[in-house]
Design a protein around this nucleic acid. Structure first.
Lengths: 206, 206
DNA sequence: GCAGAAACTTGAACGATTGCAGTTTCTGAC
DNA sequence: GTCAGAAACTGCAATCGTTCAAGTTTCTGC
């Protein structure tokens, strides 16, 4: 029953305490709220010293977001391992629809999302973290298209795609919003009055 | 010689201490670096208590960015008071070129920019702050076009336009990059291989 | 000229984070 | 086996950002 077949006892124990800390943190945060729980409380519950806690996580907010590596991996995988003949942007659209905006029926995910949404510190931390994936995503896109890793069109696409959840999740129909924004990205704003000077003039009502 | 002709002595004094604090902060930060200067140091230099300091600024990073109200004002003004017949997006492009990406010859601005760029905490704070203008900008755009204030195309445009500096300033030719990204926004990514599934397939080289 | 609001002060907290000096626990080499 | 050293962990104290409570000074409007 080796969960981590590769490594020795040491690393296993290390992973165990890390997990214990993360579990304790989530439990306490969900029960009492992020700001009403101190790092010491978490350390206490996990039965480690606060020093140890900070050896495993770079800060209080990070306690909530382990799993970030996997998120980035699945993001670049969506681009790299897309179906034959599917465009990069289409793959990202599909990934966005499937993974981001699903108001999950899983009650654990739901409570977690609520916690993050209701805690400003966590909201901000999440956004910062999320946008840091822009580099990796951009690189993945560029690689798929055989372009320079710092190709501007790819970097821009990456950043803009990552903005989609922020734009869509607050709307009454998130799924439709995702579609709309992707259509805008593909076809541009010119078709929507916004793009050209002369077209815009006709339709103003100010 | 009244710099603030409108208000009484009280408000003038208040503005004076606020300014004293901001000046002290910038001076110390530029000299020793943001992280090597404590809030207490700044308060000391400005000859106020730290409590007073926090009555004027919501946090340490905010000491560096007074002037944010004006930035947002000039942003929405660029949209509202654009030349006759100019499109909203064109106005924003012009504003971006004129105000954001200018590697100023003014040595003070340059040192300031370097400070922000070299300090992660400040970089992140700036980005968060910057993106908070999305709401106002989106509303301004929607108003100009006579659309609902929460129109998705306008919100998306606002957020994406605000990403432009982050995309452009790190490049060797920031001005050209601004142009490119605006062109992408207007005409969409479909023309750049990225947009459609079938076109993308032909040009891959993996 | 006075009541009250506003700006400021002192002093003490609280919580996150870091540094330091040790102790225990594993690992790899002999 | 065992032993040296690395790694994980502990306790404690310090620093720093931030806030609170209670009181003092300084303006403003009446």
């Amino acid at each position: 029953m080796p969960d981590t077949p590769s490594t020795g006892r040491r690393e296993r124990k290390k992973a165990a305490t890390r997990q214990a800390i993360a579990d304790a943190a989530l439990e306490l945060f969900l029960e009492h709220g992020f700001d009403r729980v101190s790092v010491r409380d978490v350390a206490e519950r996990a039965d480690v010293s606060t020093t140890t806690l900070f050896a495993h996580f770079p800060g209080k907010e990070a306690l909530v977001f382990d799993r970030e590596a996997q998120v980035e991996a699945s993001l670049t995988a969506a681009v790299r391992e897309r179906p034959e003949g599917q465009g990069v942007v289409e793959a990202l659209r599909a990934h966005a629809l499937a993974s981001w905006v699903r108001l999950d029926s899983d009650p654990r995910r739901e409570r977690f999302a609520a916690l993050v949404q209701q805690t400003p510190a966590l909201r901000e931390y999440w956004e910062r973290m999320w946008m840091r994936h822009a580099g990796a995503l951009s690189a993945a896109i560029a690689a798929e298209l055989g372009r320079e890793p710092d190709d501007l069109a790819c970097s821009a696409m990456a950043r803009f795609v990552l903005e989609v959840p922020a734009l869509a999740t607050t709307r009454h129909d998130p799924l439709a919003s995702v579609e709309t924004v992707f259509d805008l990205l593909i076809h541009g704003w010119q078709a929507s009055q916004l793009g050209s000077g002369d077209a815009a003039e006709d339709t103003r009502e100010a």
